[in-house]
Every structure is written in structure tokens, then in C-alpha cells.
């Protein structure tokens, strides 16, 4: 069951989540034991001397004070307090253990939440290596990666359960956290602070890959797309894209430079579209470009009324953005 639940938080693949899984299990086991003990006490206590109610005037037996019963409270509360103190110590120890990354992160990614997608900007000392992408965040396996979290509209929350807990993206402040994956994989993330109509479909993925693959990915992301080219068949699509999509979307190298929507320079390198909503297939791509308001009603991407040939042409162009 767990394996089919990509957002579960009982399986961890990152240092921060690793330490929390035993804490969750520990607290859960304590909780279940407490519930069972109290339920059994209530049940046995009731059945031991209880009697059915019959509606006649002498239905209620006479009252009596059979013992003060106070030891129940003293012992029960005493034991509870010990358990609480233990849980508190465990909690604070876990907090301290994951308060800081194991070492100073070399890499910083600025993640900016938008209604209803995620923008990621990879920072570097070398300005030519800075770039933007969206909804798919690649990190190297092993070293910690710093995440500076911001929001451009309302409050969102950044959550990759397999790697670590939540942190809110709040307009007017930058929150910092870090991701540290210990196993390569594609980990599902999701906005978890209610943020409006498409809060439900504000997903993303974190791809943790070996450092050399990560390096190669970064290099490939830096490449600009051709502003014109020998593929005459695509020139029309490119031009249409710039005209119809370029006000909101950027494709580096072309005149499409909008910043309202995700950067699409290498959209075909991503596994999903529409903020983790659909697998990135030809059919889904066409469906999404043609009619985003059916797939994500309320999304800020409008239906722009493309004709069949226009749609085909734009879709064909987008599919070259590898």
C-alpha cells in the first residue's frame, strides 16, 4: 500500500525525513497502546458490574461511594507524565538533529511558489550558470541543497514528504530550508497550504540523481533554444508560440520572454506538465494547450481559442524543446 502512495511519509529517502520516521512510529505506537488500554478499561469497567437499563421507577440502583478512586488519577496521570516527558525529550533531540544540514550546502535553489505552480531558480557564483525552470527540481544525491523559499502571491507550503517536512512560502519573507537525498529517485512534492482554486493540483517532483548526472542535467538546462533554424516546418510553430504563448512563457533564445507562467525552455526534459498534474505525453500536451480550464479549472492559463492546425503547430514546436 505504501509503495503506491507517492506522498506517504512513512518511507524516507532523505536525511531529514529519516530521523522523523522512527519518531512518528514511536509516537503512533505509544498512542495506540494508550487508546487500547483506556478502551479496555472503559469496556471492562462497564461490563464488570454494569446492568441493563429497564424503564421502571426502581431502575437506578442506590448510590454509594465505593472508595475514593483517587489512586486511578495519581497512577494514571503519573504514568502519562513520564511518557510525555520521554516523548518531549525524543522530540527535542530529533529537532536538534535535523535543525541544520550535515554540512554547509554548496548549492542554493530559489524556489518561488505561484498560484498554482513552482518556479525554481538555480543560483551560481558564475552568472552564466544561473537559470530558471519549473515544477521539476533536480538535486544531486548526497550533499545538502539549500532551498530559499518565496511566494509571489498567496501563502503556499513546500513539501516533499520522502525527503523532509513542510515549510511555508510566505509573501514578504524568504524561508530557508534544505534537502538532502540519500538515494536516487523521483520524489513527489505538493503544495500543502490551501491557496485557492487549484491548490489540489499544485504538485511538483524532486529528482535526486548522482552528482555527475546532475551536473550534466544542469549543463543541458543552460542551452538556449534556436531563435530560427533550418527546420522550416517548425518556424510557423515557433512564431505562433511567440505570439500566442510568449507573453506568459519564456523559451530562452527566442522572443518568448513572459514570466507569468513556467519557463518552457526545456519543458520536454520534464516528466510531467501542469505542475505535476499530467504525464508529459503528446496527447496530454495537446489537451493541456488546447484546454487548460478543463484540466485545471480556474488555472491562470486561459483557453486561448486555438484552431486545430494552430494547436498542432504549437504542440509540435513545444515538443522540440528538449
Amino acid at each position: 500500500m505504501i509503495d503506491q502512495a507517492p506522498l506517504n511519509y512513512l518511507q524516507a529517502f532523505g536525511i531529514k525525513a529519516d530521523k522523523v520516521v522512527p519518531l512518528i512510529w514511536g509516537l503512533a505506537v505509544i498512542s495506540i497502546i494508550v487508546v487500547v488500554i483506556v478502551s479496555v478499561l472503559v469496556l471492562v469497567g462497564a461490563l464488570r458490574r454494569g446492568r441493563a437499563f429497564s424503564p421502571n421507577p426502581d431502575a437506578m440502583p442506590p448510590v454509594e461511594r465505593a472508595g475514593s478512586g483517587l489512586p486511578w488519577i495519581t497512577i494514571g496521570v503519573g504514568l502519562s507524565t513520564l511518557v510525555l516527558i520521554a516523548a518531549m525529550v525524543w522530540t527535542v533531540a530529533t529537532m536538534a538533529a535535523i535543525n541544520r544540514p550535515s554540512r554547509q550546502p554548496d548549492l542554493t535553489i530559489e524556489v518561488r511558489a505561484h498560484q498554482w505552480w513552482w518556479e525554481a531558480r538555480y543560483l551560481s557564483g558564475d552568472p552564466s550558470r544561473i537559470f530558471r525552470t519549473a515544477n521539476e527540481i533536480h538535486i544531486p544525491v548526497g550533499p545538502p541543497v539549500k532551498i530559499n523559499l518565496a511566494s509571489s502571491d498567496v501563502i503556499h507550503s513546500f513539501w516533499v514528504p520522502a525527503i523532509g517536512g513542510k515549510l511555508d512560502a510566505i509573501p514578504g519573507q524568504t524561508n530557508a530550508t534544505w534537502l538532502e537525498a540519500r538515494k536516487p529517485g523521483t520524489y513527489r512534492g505538493q503544495c500543502t497550504e490551501y491557496c485557492g482554486l487549484q491548490h489540489a493540483r499544485m504538485g511538483f517532483v524532486v529528482v535526486a540523481e548522482p552528482p555527475d548526472e546532475f551536473r550534466a542535467w544542469w549543463d543541458s538546462q543552460l542551452r538556449a533554444q534556436a531563435s530560427s533554424g533550418p527546420h522550416d516546418g517548425l518556424a510557423g510553430g515557433r512564431q505562433l508560440f511567440v505570439q500566442r504563448c510568449g507573453a506568459c512563457h519564456t523559451v530562452r533564445g527566442t522572443q518568448a520572454g513572459g514570466i507569468m507562467g513556467p519557463d518552457l525552455t526545456h519543458v520536454m526534459s520534464r516528466g510531467t506538465i501542469a505542475a505535476g498534474t499530467l504525464p508529459n505525453t503528446t496527447a496530454n500536451l495537446a489537451g493541456w494547450i488546447a484546454n487548460p480550464q478543463t484540466i485545471k479549472p480556474g488555472s491562470l492559463m486561459p483557453n486561448i481559442g486555438l484552431s486545430g492546425p494552430e494547436l498542432a503547430s504549437i504542440r509540435a514546436y513545444v515538443e522540440t524543446l528538449k
Binding site: 483506556v38 478499561l41 472503559v42 469497567g45 462497564a46 464488570r48 458490574r49 454494569g50 446492568r51 441493563a52 437499563f53 431502575a59 437506578m60 440502583p61 454509594e64 465505593a66 472508595g67 478512586g69 483517587l70 486511578w72 488519577i73 497512577i75 494514571g76 496521570v77 502519562s80 507524565t81 510525555l84
Partner: peptide, 22 residues
């Protein structure tokens, strides 16, 4: 949770040392 525990054990003890009518 400690004051809540007080109430819980008070109720349990009341059932346990009483003669419940269902």
C-alpha cells in the same frame, strides 16, 4: 495533555468503582 489525562482517569475510575447502568 496532562490536565486532560486527569479527566480521563477520573472518568475511568468513576466507571470502574461505580455500578454502571447502560
Amino acid at each position: 495533555t496532562i490536565p486532560s489525562a486527569v479527566a480521563v482517569f477520573a472518568w475511568v475510575a468513576t466507571i470502574w468503582t461505580g455500578r454502571p447502568v447502560f
